[in-house]
Design a protein around this nucleic acid. Sequence first.
DNA 1: TACATCGGACGATCAAGAAC
DNA 2: TTCTTGATCGTCCGATGTAG
Length: 719
Amino acid sequence: MASRPTTPSGSAYRPPKPQRILACVLCQQRKVKCDRKFPCNHCVKARVQCVPAQQMPRRRKRPTEQALTERLRQYEELLRRNNIAVETTDDMDVEGTSADVEGQGLRSTGQTHLDGVAQVPDGQPAGAEVVKSEYQTLGEVKNFWDAMHQRPPDSHDVTEEANVDNNFGNPTFDDLSEPVIIKVWGRVYDSDHNHLFGDSKIDVPLSTLHPSHVQIFRLWQIYSDNINPLLKVTHAPTLQARILDAAVDVAGISRELEALMFSIYCATIITLSEDDCHAMLGDSKPKLLRKYQNACHQALINCGFLRSRERDCLTAFFLYLVSLRPDTHPHTLSPMFAIAFRIAYRMNIANEASNVKHGVFEAEMRRRLWWAMVAYDSRISEMTDYKTTQLIPTWDCKIPVNVNDFDLRPEMTTRPTDQEASTEALFAIVRGAIGNYVRHNALHLDFINPMLKHVAKATQHVFDPYDDDLNGLENIIENRHLKYCNLENPLHYMTIWWARNHLAKYRFFLHCSQHSRSPDHQSTVQRDAILSYAFRMLECDTALMSSPLTKGYHWLIQFHFPFPAYVRIVQDLRSRPVGAHADKAWEIMNANYTVRFVDMEPSANILFKMFASTVLQAWAARHAALFGQDGAESARRMIVDIKKKLGQPSPPIATADDAVPPVQGGMSMLPPSEVQVFPSIGQDSVNYLDPSLAELNTDLFEMDWGNVDWNAMSRMGWP
DNA sequence: TACATCGGACGATCAAGAAC
DNA sequence: TTCTTGATCGTCCGATGTAG
């Protein structure tokens, strides 16, 4: 008999196991045989996307010490009943028992004995103690009720919340702790109204408003592709299982999960095209959005989102707000986000000392939610009032850890280590790294509240491994996070260009903060530097908008229209209309215009006119400066398209004569020397090219923003 | 009749401890 | 390092329900 082949070490050779091909998700769900061709026969028949299932990591549930002890007692009892002498566990030496259990890896501390191994002292969830030691934090905010009772801050929270129901019947003054007080308020204001959201407009059970089984599944898949990689506020493996279960019995799910599911439907729909909505859900996008937003709104009321402390509930509210964004005035959205932040602060998710008490998994999910909210809100703040941003140094929530969702499991007791390679959390990690730098930056804080600079100084050494240097941050982002990226992977592509865009954007902002004088009073070096950041922003934005890889992420990219970059470039072009930098500016603007506006429907809205007016002013300046002899074809294409959209004739091929009208109150942006050189660069020259824009020939910084149609503007991702 | 749903039996897999 | 154990995951048969 031939001997089995062996490995170099002498052990028997085992060919690698062929990778197991699992049934597709739909077949698993339906419990039918899958032929494992993708698409499989059932999916083809059902005309749905066939998605191969992913193998779940084994989650072996270790029996708790309590369960083991209980089992042991049962066996002892059986032995005793059969008249067999036995030394009971109660008689055994405590130290010995403890050591035995520790030997099995069941105990993390020697302090507790038989009452719940997965608990650390004070009833904290698994992993809380381990994680705690990993952090330096600002410390926990004092609790008033603990101070009243002279108790250490750790002695309530999770344990007491869990025990509230036990002693809630007749709380005495000694029982009074924050969770008890909350419960008491709950009883006192049992029927409070949701004043902000008004009364329900839905007169049917919410369970009847869910999409069909198959549609729920498809929406979840699209959410997993388009939303989750960028926001990372949900944990795909556990939530997918919950949603698939819930889809089977939508009437029997918890209120929080119901709100979360409706919020996922709404958020997913904003990422779909009109055609996709019809094909997949059989209705128009606005109708579907309205339907699921109403249902989500009601589901949020049902779970008392304003007073809830459930993470699912806050996540649902956040996703609901994300779904409102494209059709909502940012000034309306901003206070709604303020509500979300007030809830988050009540839940203490911005506080690391509080997060670590919730166990490894929950703490990580709280961090992800907080950072996603801060990042999204900071964009809204940019669009409304920069001062309201939460990108400030007064909280200490850590950046989420760089791991795949499968490496983050609810039963974990130690925080997973940051992976070197790119993971599913890449975008969230990079966004967090940039955000962490920005919130401690003094020049950024000048725009918000200069007093916070003292806080930033005091806390930076604790939180910011990136030093005070944007170059250092850029280095780390490029060499640590983007190094392993594959440009063919949509999330990697998105992260690379997003990160570069934001680094350029913050250089741009910080430069503006440092050199806030009028551009005309800045040195050429300063003007060139800031112009280069503006160019970079447009180039990155063009890369993001033009790639087919990022189609599913357009909902977020469109939200970040590089408006300040355009403003700055045009300002510069009006005063320096010719030269190498000007040629480059037109080329870059044209490329960005092509991906942002060319497919836009001709619109009479004031926003586009405003944008057009600004660009045409710069164009007029160039045209005049070159006496009509302009060879910049790319710029001309852009101008022709703008004119077309405005319903104006294409720009005339101006003659030198046209280009030298008399100066009548030339533009304030121009230094006198340049007005002399280019006498046509003035208000009249713009009107000459496009008289319909006379009313709009105003500086962007001076216009009345209160009259702007923000709904349309925000749909386009302005400003 | 065709198709969807789902309880539940059964096999496959693999983490963890035991044995060598 | 290999073996054993048993919990968990994954499959899909077949009973049942539903719609046309």
